[in-house]
Amino acid sequence: MTTQLTSKDGEVRELNDDDVKDMRRMAEVLPTSLQRSIGQRGKQQAPTKVKTSIRLSPDVIDHFKQQGDGWQRRIDQALKQYIREHG
């Protein structure tokens, strides 16, 4: 018997060992058109950004990471605002 993964309210329950054993590979359940490699990005929706490496102070990184996901985007926005104000 399969136990529902979600409640009537749509809340997802914690997966257990049996759930993991019942999982199937992506290739078995998705059509080829929807499959992609793990870590492979989909088509860019916005203009492509430039990948770079930059050294920032730990307190700067901590500040943005404490606000949750999207911390790199927020750093980008903060730098754009600086350019607008000081450009």
Rank of each mutant, 00 (worst) to 15 (best):
R73D: 08
D62Q: 07
V29M: 04
V50P: 03
R25T: 12
K80D: 13
K49P: 10
L30N: 10
P58S: 05
H86G: 01
Y82S: 09
Q72K: 11
V29G: 00
A46C: 02
I38G: 08
F64Y: 13
E85I: 03
M1Q: 01
R74T: 05
Q81Y: 06
T6C: 11
V29I: 14
T3L: 08
G87A: 04
H63G: 06
D17L: 14
T3H: 03
Q4T: 03
G42L: 00
Q44S: 03
Y82A: 03
T52V: 12
D19Q: 06
V29F: 09
P58E: 04
I38V: 15
D69E: 10
K49E: 07
Q67V: 10
E85Q: 14
A78G: 01
S53V: 11
L79D: 01
R55K: 07
D69I: 09
P58W: 08
T48R: 11
M23A: 15
Q4E: 15
I83V: 15
R41C: 13
Q67C: 04
S57K: 10
R24P: 08
E28L: 02
K65Q: 09
F64P: 00
S7I: 04
R55P: 00
V29T: 12
S7C: 13
M26S: 13
E14S: 13
Q35C: 09
Q67H: 13
I38A: 15
S33E: 15
I61S: 01
D18L: 03
D18G: 01
L15E: 12
I61G: 03
D76F: 03
R84Y: 14
T52N: 04
T3Q: 10
E28F: 00
D19T: 00
K43T: 10
V20F: 12
S53D: 09
D18N: 11
A27F: 05
Q66I: 02
G10Q: 08
P31M: 01
